[in-house]
């Protein structure tokens, strides 16, 4: 029976406590057990706050369940919930991650008046003409002439970049930053990228090579998981 098996294991680490919660019992069982366990562990008044990390294993909590759990732990003095970790996520969230981490290939000329919007990164094989607009929640890579408007990191990913084989945009937008072309006639630039420079707090355009240094996590798949 449930009583015979330990549902909650507490481990102390340098960063605080970690609660391992058995993932085969019901949520109410878990709460009762937790209540009991935490009540028996009394702490002295003068000790500092203890941070708690909760490992749920293969259990998934709804938002209100999570709130209940936090509430319970908060009610015990001296305990602060640092994070709740679980091995499982809902399918929808997983698909959203996948969507966000995919590179969408678009093969066309984006003409004046046309808007192309994608989730995730966009690889445009073609041009963006003046008056045309492309938007992506991730990065934008244009293998062609970027003469219109490109908006990367919609709505709030400030790490997003815009790279183009030929760059002469009317506007570059990344997350909530906007930069526009100068008022005098300029030649475009080849193989450059636009990123947000965090020190200057604005979008800068520089050679593609700086990306390796400034945005190393464009590489690979792992970063997507981190973002998720």
């Amino acid at each position: 029976m449930a009583g015979s098996k330990q549902l909650i294991t507490i481990k102390g680490t340098r960063d605080g406590l970690t609660l391992y919660i058995d993932d085969s019992c019901s949520f109410s069982e878990m709460l009762t057990e937790l209540e009991a366990t935490l009540s028996t562990n009394h702490v002295a008044e003068d000790e500092p706050m203890i941070t708690v990390t909760i490992q749920l294993g293969n259990r998934y909590l709804h938002e209100n369940q999570e709130e209940q759990l936090r509430e319970l732990i908060r009610s015990k003095n001296k305990l602060v919930v640092q994070s709740i970790e679980s091995n499982v996520i809902p399918k929808k969230q997983a698909l959203d991650w996948l969507e966000d981490s995919e590179v969408k290939v678009v093969n066309k000329v984006v003409r004046s008046g046309q808007v192309i919007e994608v989730q995730g990164d966009m690889l445009l094989i073609g041009d963006v003409n003046p008056g045309g607009k492309i938007m992506a929640s991730g990065n934008i890579f244009v293998m062609g002439n970027l003469r219109g408007v490109a908006h990367a990191g919609v709505p709030n990913n400030r790490e997003a970049v815009i790279a183009a084989a030929y760059m002469k945009p009317t506007q570059l937008r990344i997350a909530d930053y906007i930069s526009r072309s100068p008022d005098y006639e300029t030649e475009g630039v080849y193989m450059e990228c636009g990123i947000i420079d965090h020190e200057q707090e604005k979008i800068i355009i520089d050679r593609l090579q700086i990306l390796a240094r400034k945005r190393p996590d464009i590489n690979g798949f792992e970063r997507r998981m981190i973002h998720g």
Partner: peptide, 16 residues
């Protein structure tokens, strides 16, 4: 002229 090319671009988009 720029304005005329811009509108031509728009029309081409619609024609496509």
């Amino acid at each position: 002229e720029k304005s005329s090319v811009r509108d031509a671009d728009r029309i081409i988009g619609l024609l496509e």
